[in-house]
Simulated assay, not measured.
Amino acid sequence: MNVILLIIISYLIGCFSSAYLIGKIFKKMDIRSYGSGNAGATNAVRVMGKKLGVLTFLLDFTKGIIAVLLGYRMMGYNGGLIAAFFVVMGHDWPIFLGFKGGKGVATTIACFAVLNFPIALISVIIGITVALTTRFVSLGSIVFFTIVPILNIVNFNNFNKEFFIASIFLAIIGIYKHKENIKRLKNGCENRIGR
């Protein structure tokens, strides 16, 4: 029973679409009709500016932390893993917005930060470095998703099977949500930072 309750609550927390609500409140607009059409922090920065974009990121980040901590409280570490998966699902496919949400980067970072802070920190640093070097935010995000499970394998003395499985699933979701970015990267027409 606790598992079902945790899944539902985590998913609903994820459905809180920061980009959508901020767009409606501050700009009287549906952000999904502008820019990339994505209800996430990167598109929020491009469409609504840095301040509202940062606010979007922080709110998306916060809901990841809240969900995982709730999972910890209800079911321990495995509860945190379950909460992480479903809060990201809610963010990416929110039921209240016709399942058209974001790509889950900020929320996933938050989840990993609670579940395994050292790996999350290193992965974020690598992802940011790639994004700043190439000026492709999407590429930095894809690298972040990819590097988390890899670092868990490399850290064989503290290998965590449950975290590894969760990170694989979240990586698959994150990379899938970036499928259009991947196509644009291959075709050389992806948006760069500053454009």
Rank of each mutant, 00 (worst) to 15 (best):
F156M: 13
F99S: 02
V47T: 09
F112A: 05
G14A: 09
A171G: 13
S18K: 07
I153Y: 01
S138I: 06
T129G: 15
N155C: 04
F96V: 04
S33Q: 13
G64H: 04
I153N: 05
L70D: 11
V124T: 14
G104P: 04
Y11K: 08
G79M: 08
C111L: 04
I153V: 15
F163R: 10
F144P: 03
V88M: 05
G101C: 03
I168Q: 08
L139D: 03
I7C: 02
I4H: 00
L58F: 15
I150F: 14
M29V: 15
M89T: 09
V87Y: 01
G40E: 03
L132R: 13
G53P: 07
G79L: 02
N191F: 05
I128V: 15
Y34C: 09
K50C: 01
K179L: 02
K28M: 00
L185P: 03
R192G: 11
V88P: 12
H178K: 07
K103L: 09
F112I: 02
K100S: 13
I22Y: 01
F61Y: 12
I172R: 01
L58Q: 10
I4D: 02
I95C: 14
M48S: 10
T42Y: 00
W93S: 09
F85K: 00
T56M: 01
I128K: 05
G90T: 01
R135T: 08
L5V: 14
F156G: 06
K177P: 01
I147D: 02
I122S: 11
L6P: 05
F86A: 04
K24S: 02
L70T: 06
N116Y: 11
F96N: 12
P118K: 13
I142V: 10
N181C: 08
A19G: 14
N158V: 03
I175L: 10
N187L: 15
I95A: 15
I8C: 07
S141T: 02
K103I: 02
L81V: 14
F96D: 12
V87I: 08
I13L: 15
A67Y: 03
I25M: 14
N187R: 13
A106R: 06
G40M: 01
I22R: 04
A166S: 14
T129F: 15
T107W: 02
K63D: 00
L139H: 01
I175N: 07
